[in-house]
Each structure stands twice: as C-alpha cells, then as structure tokens.
Design a protein around this nucleic acid. Structure first.
Lengths: 162, 162
DNA sequence: ATATTATGTCAGTGATGTTGACATAATATC
DNA sequence: GATATTATGTCAACATCACTGACATAATAT
C-alpha cells in the first residue's frame, strides 16, 4: 500500500494528458462537422470556411495577412479565394496606400453565408458554455491559449480582441 | 449610458463564442504541428498517427471499432492500416471468439513510435496545464466534453477512463 | 535605375478523405 | 442444413486541400 501514491500520481498525470489530447481531437472533429455539411451542399470545403470566417473577422485584410494567419501557401489560398471571389462571396479592392494590395471584404452574400455557418458552431459552443458555466469557460480559454505556439498567442489574441 | 448593459451583453456573448471558436482552431492547428513534422520524415501522415494512437490506447480493438471511433470509411482506414501493418508498426491477430475479427495491437516498433509522437503533444499539453492550473484544466475538459456530440460523450469518456 | 514586395499563376505531386460495388470467410438464425 | 448477416478486404474512380518550385507583373522603396 505504501507504493500506491507515487504510482497513482504518475498514472494520473499520463491519463490527464491523454484526456486533454483526446477531448481536443473529438471536440474538433464534431465542431467542424456541422459547417462541413452545409459547405458540402455548395461545393465548398473547410478551407473556404476559414477564409470566409477570417475575412469576416478582419474586413480589409490582405492576401498576405490571410496567408500568415492560416499558415498555408499562396497556391492553396489562391484557389479557394479565387472561387469565393468568382462566386460573389468575397470582394477585393485595391489598397489606397499600397495599390499592390488586395483588400478583402465579404459581400452581402458572403456575410449571409458566413452567418449561416457560424450559427451552427455558435449553437454548439453556446450550449457547451452554458452547461459548463463561466469558470469552466475561463479555464477552457486559458488552457487552449497556452496550447497555441507561444510566438502566436499575440496573433490569436489580436484576432479576438478587436 | 442606460443602453450600455444590454448592448454590452450581446456583444460580449458573440465575442465569447468567437473566442472559443478561434482558440479551438489555433490550438488544434499548433497541437498537430509537432507530430506532423515527425510523421513527414517517415512518410506517414496524421491519419497514421490517429490509428497508432487509438490502437495504442485500445490494444485488441477491431477494425470496426476503429472505424466507428474515427468516423472514417473502411477504405480510408484500410489504406492507412495496411501500411502500418506492412511496415511493422501494427500487428493483427484473429479473434478468439469470432475469428472474422482482426484484433489490432502495436508492435514494439509501433509502441516506440507512438511514444515519440505522444511526447511532443504531451510536452505541449503538460506545459499548458501547468501554466493554467488545475481548475482551468477542469474547465477545459468540461467545455470540450460538451462540445462533443451528445451521443458520443460516452465513447469519449470510455476512451479516457480505461 | 534597381531591388524588393504583394500578388497571381502554371505545372506537378501527395495525403486523406469519399462512394459504390463486389468478394470471402465466419457466425447467427430459422 | 440452408440462408442471412456480419467483419473484413479490395477494386476503381474521384474530390479536396495541402505542398514545391518556378516565373510574371505591377507597385513601391531605396
């Protein structure tokens, strides 16, 4: 019986870490399911959702702004963004100070669609917040923020606090 | 000033939801980065990691067990699982009660590799737990569990509590 | 005048997922 | 014992989303 404590502690520690990993996996899996289903109807995918989301959050952002936020390559973005522009969800305007830049905005159509996609995740997250309570929500934010790469926490927060 | 409260509440509510959504996105993005880098060296991808992970967690699980846990199709799994078996990371044994079943286990090689992949995420999550503290960790679990589809929470917990 | 930057585009590739159809062997049921 | 169901595997075809590397253009900075 004397050996019980140290063993239990190590065991718990490993279990606690695996619990976080697994919850993160399953939550992310289900969290992307609802919008994916809507997107599939329109012929878009998750990549289109991300662009719609972040352009909606950062009206007037540039192509390179999106590239560094999403950490994908120009070619990956360009295909997705091109489709969104062509089908009238996103509009581009030349920068006023630097006319090389393409400032990106959602059109009305884009905003409506983004709201529809957001609504599914909003519902899920709001429900989870409500069930867990405000203190749990703070903990949720804090742990997640610390999981993000240290160098990028500012970017994440500047997304959020705008 | 009288209008401030209701407006603030609505605004905060939306912001709080978007904060959760964004943190989930960025945390997941970075959380998968370290193992992805190791996997790339061996020619494997994230799908291989998931199989290694869950076979490691559930020694003796069957093909259909994995299918329903991962929610992918047989064809997707079969390609990935086939490679893992062929390269000696996973071994299959016929079921004793039902000989149609293939019971899946990690080989020593598979266990070693899974540990290596796990170590990177372990480090990241342990650090985040440490910085945020135990109460935050509880909140983190609780919110994430409630984000998972209701029907699947048992599955998630039975993964965890084993 | 020259270098750098922001963006776009071409061609090729790879990983991961999908659907649908079909095959085999083992087990369960009538 | 005949038949249905189940667990697994496999084939062919396809879509999405990422990648690399190279090159082009226009605008801005030095």
């Amino acid at each position: 019986m004397q050996r019980k404590l140290p063993h239990s502690n190590l065991y718990l520690r490993e279990e606690e870490l695996r619990r976080g990993i697994e919850l993160l996996y399953f939550a992310y899996r289900d969290f992307t399911r609802d919008p994916d289903a809507i997107l599939a109807e329109t012929g878009f995918g998750r990549a289109h959702h991300r662009v719609l989301y972040f352009v909606g959050r950062n009206p007037g952002t540039t192509v390179s702004g999106l590239l560094s936020l999403l950490r994908i390559t120009k070619q990956s973005l360009s295909r997705v963004l091109g489709q969104l522009v062509e089908e009238g969800y996103v509009k581009q305007e030349s920068g006023v100070e630097d006319r090389r830049q393409r400032l990106l905005y959602l059109t009305d159509k884009g905003e409506t669609f983004e709201k529809e996609l957001f609504a599914t995740q909003r519902q899920r997250v709001a429900e989870a917040y409500k069930k867990a309570g405000p203190e749990a929500v703070s903990g949720f934010w804090e742990v997640l923020l610390n999981i993000v790469n240290e160098e990028e926490r500012d970017t994440v927060l500047s997304q959020i606090e705008k």
